[in-house]
Design a protein around this nucleic acid. Structure first.
Length: 202
DNA sequence: CCACGGATTGGCT
DNA sequence: GCCAATCCGTGGA
């Protein structure tokens, strides 16, 4: 099938930060690489707010690095960290807001052999390696070939987009503190699907 | 199973 | 200079 799928429209991303974060759970992130398609179900996210959130890249205002976060909902914000990793965010809200949702983990769906090659250099992998394909923010970027040149791209496009899917009921969503930050550590702005094998950390 | 530290670049003080 | 929205290998319990 080369038919257009149900790509989530820009309006979805322009709503309230935590509403968008929770509703992103269960949706499908799709990356087209040539004629191939690589995709995964979003199972873990974190919200970052420009205001009252010291852990957010946007907290201290607009700079060259975080500019995409301020351009309004529906864009991909990719940042480079620890000298070697990329992480992908969905920009949320209106122009000037500086809000985004970090995609922290995917359940691999299509293009699993492609992901395996990107992550481990071969197409045949163990069960443990399968669990490890995209269960972290930098791992999923490597699996989907998301790099710095993808920063600022529209998610309402043919190349990289998020597909509609059945919403995950509130009873299946765990809300807890974010991972790997040293500021605003008490905000419970991390959301993940209860019991999912591909969540990075319980 | 868990804890720890090295890798390695670029943005900001 | 400092240190980061991370990952992986190593070493010990």
């Amino acid at each position: 099938m080369t038919q257009k799928k149900n790509i989530i429209p820009k309006k979805f991303y322009e709503r309230e930060l935590h509403t968008v974060a929770k509703e992103l759970l269960g949706k499908i992130l799709v990356r087209k690489i040539g004629t191939a398609s690589v995709s995964g179900r979003i199972v873990e996210v974190e919200a970052y707010d420009g205001a009252n959130d010291e852990a957010s890249h946007s907290f201290k205002g607009r700079t060259m690095r975080n500019d995409v976060m301020f351009r309004g909902g529906g864009l991909l914000y990719v940042y480079f960290t620890y000298g070697m990793h990329f992480c992908a965010n969905v920009v949320v809200g209106k122009e000037g807001d500086g809000k985004a949702v970090l995609i922290r983990a995917l359940e691999p769906l299509d293009g699993i052999e492609q992901m395996a090659r990107k992550r481990f250099g071969r197409k045949n992998i163990s069960g443990k390696e399968f669990t490890n394909l995209a269960n972290g923010p930098a791992k999923l970027c490597k699996a989907l070939s998301i790099y710095k040149n993808d920063n600022g791209k529209s998610l309402v496009s043919d190349e990289i987009f998020i597909e509609e899917a059945e919403p995950v009921p509130d009873s299946e969503i765990i809300r807890t503190v974010r991972i790997g930050i040293k500021k605003s550590v008490d905000l419970q702005w991390r959301y993940y699907i209860k019991g999912n094998r591909f969540v990075s950390k319980k």
